[in-house]
Amino acid sequence: MNDIVVLAIESSCDETSAAVIKNGTEVMSNIVSSQIDIHKKFGGVVPEVASRHHVENITLVLDAAIKEANCNINDITCVAVTKGPGLIGSLLVGINAAKAFAFSHDLPIVGVHHIAGHIYANNLVENLEFPSLALVVSGGHTELVLMEDHNSFNIIGKTRDDAVGEAYDKVARVVNLTYPGGPQIDRLAKSGRETYKLPRVMLNQDNYDFSFSGLKSAVINLVHNANQRNESINIENLAKSFQESVVDILVGKTLKALKNYNVKQLLLAGGVAANSDLRARLQVEMKNYSHIKLIIPPLKYCTDNAAMIGVAGTFAYLNGVRDDLSLNGKASLEL
């Protein structure tokens, strides 16, 4: 069987990224704009490599991805690209680059859902087996997704207000930590104790939905009240208290789903998968579910990247998904 080599492009949010993936398991290259010093590497005509500057970045990351993969362009099977959800202007940069490449090399195009990409990052660790359950946790998403087969996604729970990564960033801002707040709160929590009482919103409700807005407001009120009374806040303890609440909710809802769905794998996906307490708690809890394999992708494949789009694109291609030059981006796209 011939190798399936996918050139993948992701530009739905802040990162511009390109990757080359072989057979849905091997990363030949994965270039993310924020991770390379484009000035240094390319001698820079780029004025500034800031977020969402996809137009300036796209040809540079594409070029770098193909060079680093050291593959012959004739070996490429298809081009996969994120078609949504995301800012339409950002999506279109990636989509048009994909179309131009596909047109000039006469290759098929496969449009990929951004969240499908996050979930498929797990296939870089171990082949997906079905049914499987994915906990998708990032700045923009908090979802429990049941997969019965490749390319089959059933969202059984989602956030009703803020995404978990967003709650982290906003709480971090309230206590004057710099962006991004998630890693900082995680670091502070390591030397803190759970001394502040914070809510576990919706944890005991009989569904798989999440809510983090109330938790965010509880922290804001707590800090505000302390300020008014001239009391100081122990930031490490607040970080730990917040994180415990978040982990209780995420893990609690996930375990509830595992009790009701007979799955073979639990997949962690999205940037919040980096959270140390979330990983640790899941690893401990999953010892009680020895028949379910817990998979956590390496961090570089959890944050936004094109490798994950290439993996999802490979399986979409194998399932017969084909798009053409009429492919359009969609700001709000259903999984």
Partner: peptide, 13 residues
């Protein structure tokens, strides 16, 4: 469900 658009910046319904 209408949830926060902070990260995606724009959501359509």
């Amino acid at each position: 469900v209408v949830n926060s658009p902070t990260f995606t910046i724009i959501k359509e319904y």
